[in-house]
């Protein structure tokens, strides 16, 4: 099955709502609870990254018998140094965002730890695409 959800940049009041919808789908599909837990962490972090850094974005998902594939595409400032962004503790989040408990530099590391494959591609001034794959039977 396929689905997509719009994610609005800067709107923290809705952060997590797309992930919450997808979590419901994963439950309906009877994925293993441990697998759902990991995917929930990964997609929430990717969703919050769009809210915190981009102007707007979309989460596109595709689920088949083998895997859950999630692609987060945004229009935003992009990431200058993806390797640096992957480092635990590195963040460019604003002070305001940090005070809310976001922007601790744990987002991308959390995605990596909770997925089987993570691909980040970015163009400065245009946007970022984050692709997350979780294999169902491992």
């Amino acid at each position: 099955m396929e689905f997509s959800y719009i994610i609005e940049g800067g709107d923290f009041s809705k952060a997590g709502s797309a992930s919450s919808e997808v979590k419901k789908i994963l439950k309906q599909l009877n994925l293993a609870p441990e697998k759902i837990k990991k995917i929930a962490v990964a997609m929430y972090e990717a969703e919050v990254n769009i809210v915190a850094h981009a102007y707007k974005g979309v989460m596109e998902g595709k689920i088949d018998a083998e895997k859950v594939f999630l692609r987060f595409r945004d229009e935003g400032p992009g990431i200058e140094d993806v390797d640096k962004a992957m480092q635990e503790g590195f963040s460019t989040a604003s002070e305001e965002v940090r005070q809310m408990g976001f922007g601790a530099g744990m987002g991308l590391p959390n995605i990596r730890k909770n997925s089987d494959s993570l691909k980040v591609s970015s163009e400065v001034g245009k946007g970022t695409t984050v692709e997350i794959t979780s294999y169902i039977n491992n």
Binding site: F12, E45, M100, G101, F102, M106, P109, N110, K113
Partner: peptide, 22 residues
């Protein structure tokens, strides 16, 4: 929030000073 996402577990109580809807 990312620390809680990464390290808390189902059934636990979360102690925090954050009060916003996230």
């Amino acid at each position: 929030l990312s620390d809680v996402m990464g390290h808390s577990d189902e059934g636990q109580v979360w102690i925090t000073l954050q009060t916003h809807k996230n």
